[in-house]
Simulated scan of single mutants.
Amino acid sequence: MRKAVGLAAAAALTGGAAVAALVVWPVGRTPDPIPPEGNVERGAYLARASGCIACHTDFEKGGAPLAGGAPLKTDFGVFYPPNLTSDKVHGIGDWSREDFAKAIRQGVSPEGEPYYPTFTYPFYANFTDQDIADLYAAFTTVPPVAEETPEHEVSFPFDQRWGLKLWRASFLERPLTDPDPGRSELWNRGKELVNGAAHCGACHTGRNFAGARVSEARFEGSDSLPGGRKSPSIRARDLRERGWTVSNLAYALQTGLTPEGDAFGGSMAEVVQNGTSFLRQEDLTAMATYLLEAEAVDTAMSGAADPAPEATVVD
């Protein structure tokens, strides 16, 4: 009995030491200096493409742009996207360019704490230093809003941020944005946007028990979006079978209208209204080209479909 108790105590001490080590173990790395010459216009465009306004603005309550988003209700609790205005207390007004780079590309706060993966930082990991400089320049122009973001409503053990270090070690992947030399410039631009800034896979890919995207189910759709919503498959074959072409998909990303005259509903409506509707036509075409694998499809399938004059909302 004494031996069993001793072994149990030793195991508990060992386990406690391991947890303590994990709690203090640093996460992330110090970024190289970010160039100060950022382009505000380009940064604002990249912010639109990245969905910043859609997630960090509470439209239902008439919240100010980027002052904190509407609650994201998930199986792990309720998460509140933070205030991204230039307020120095409640926003990011006192962040350096390097703080900003670490948060965007690594998902780590200026204090060294890992962010929850409800923040889509894994898709931004390949942003260049110039991308970060442009985004930073754009965010400095956002008027300050002195509103504190509510604390996440997350129960144990998901409220233990040190556990995110294990999550990152197990599931964090870099985005598939590297260009394919065998593809056209247009297709590769679409790949960069879809797998990077636009983070389409965040909603259109199923999740595992830990809330991580399942790589094998990439773009197959999801039945467990925040708020109980669902998303359809956006794999090329499925899109083509549903009648999507490069022209009408690019048009839908700009207007929210489908070839049948329906309108996107739910979170996709927000994505279009606050994000993709602001993108240039060539970028919308690039995204559609990539999603449809259009360069491998007969050109006859790329004809436009005229939208119906009236629209109904569909999820």
Rank of each mutant, 00 (worst) to 15 (best):
E111A: 11
G16H: 15
R240P: 04
F119I: 10
T312G: 08
E192F: 11
V194E: 00
R189C: 06
G303Y: 14
W244Y: 02
A308M: 03
L186Y: 06
A9N: 04
S231W: 15
K73L: 11
F100L: 12
N248W: 07
R280E: 03
T205A: 05
D129R: 15
V78S: 08
D298V: 02
F79D: 01
E60T: 00
L7F: 10
G256L: 03
W167L: 05
A11P: 11
A101W: 08
F123H: 09
D159T: 11
I34P: 05
S155A: 07
A9V: 07
P179T: 08
T141V: 15
D283L: 10
I132A: 06
A10C: 13
G69K: 14
V40C: 04
P33R: 06
R48Y: 14
Q130H: 11
R42E: 06
F127Q: 01
P144H: 05
G77M: 02
S170D: 03
K3R: 15
W167Q: 08
P117M: 00
A67L: 02
L22I: 01
V154N: 04
P117T: 00
V108A: 00
S222W: 10
P259W: 09
G227C: 02
Y251N: 08
V314Y: 14
A137D: 09
L253Q: 14
G182H: 08
P122Y: 05
E173C: 04
W95K: 12
P309F: 01
W167I: 06
R42V: 13
G77D: 00
T14H: 14
F100D: 05
A9G: 04
S222K: 12
G16K: 15
V19A: 05
F209R: 08
P26R: 11
R213L: 12
L253T: 09
P117R: 04
T276Y: 12
P114A: 13
S277G: 01
T258Y: 10
G51N: 13
